[in-house]
Amino acid sequence: MPCAESMRVQAYFDGEADAVAAADIERHIEGCAECRALLDDLNQLRTALRQELPYETAPPALRAHVLRALDAQRPTKWRLEPFWKGAFSGIGGMAIAASIAFFLLAPPLTNPLLDDLVNAHVRSLMPDHLIDVVSTDKHTVKPWFAGHADVSPVVADFAEQGYRLIGGRADYFDHQRAAVIVYQHGAHVINVFSWAANRDSVPKDATLNGYHMAFWKTGNLVYCAVSDTGWDELRRLVQLLQE
C-alpha cells in the first residue's frame, strides 16, 4: 500500500508544487522512509531515461521533404496581394532562400537568446501583438514601462531622422519582463528590446531567418534592435539611441 502522499511527492519531483506545497512535502519526506525511497526511484529513472534513451533529431531528408511540401502549399495568388504585404518582409526571396539554407545547413542554434528575440519579433508582427501602449510621445511610453517591465530603457522619438516612435510593449524574455520600444521606419517595424544584463558579454550582431539583430549595452541594460530592414538602417537607429 503506497503512502497516501506519493502523488504529491511525484508532483513535487516534477516541479509542479508551488513554494508552500513544496515546503509541506519536504517536511513529509523527511519523516517518511517510503516517500524518500520513491523520490530516489524517480530520480534514478529520470537520469537513466535521459542519459540512455536515444535523443533523436529529425533526419535531414525529412526536414527537406517537409520544406518542399510546404512550398507546394504556398498560395499562387501572391501577385494579387496588396503591395504593402510585400513591403512587410522586404527581402522576400532572399529570406526564403536564407531560411531554407538555415534549416538545411545550419547546426542547431547555440544561442537560444537569438531564437527568442526573433520569435518575439515575429510574434509582435501578428495582429494585435505589436504595441501595448500606443504613443508617439516618449513622456507617455517611458512611465508606462515603470509598471509593466523590469527595466526602464531610453525612450526617444527620431521621426525627423525617419524612425518614428509608435509605442511600447512588455515582453517576457530572458527570465524577466523586458521593455520593447517600437519604431516604424518606412514600411518596416523595428523592435528595440531592452533587459537587465545577466552576463557580462553582449551578444554579437547576428542575422537569423532574414532578421537582423544589433546588440549594444548602456549601463547595465542590454539592448537589441531587431528588424528586417537592411543593416545600415538598423545601425543608424542604434547610433541615434546611443547618442
Partner: peptide, 25 residues
C-alpha cells in the same frame, strides 16, 4: 515573401525534432 510561411518556419519548425521523436515513440 509569404510572411505566414516565414512565421511558421520561425515558430513551428524549431519543434520538428520533438515532433519526430514523439512520432518515433
Amino acid at each position: 515573401m509569404d510572411d505566414r510561411r516565414q512565421r511558421f518556419e520561425v515558430l513551428v519548425l524549431p519543434h520538428l525534432d520533438a515532433a519526430y521523436r514523439f512520432a518515433r515513440w
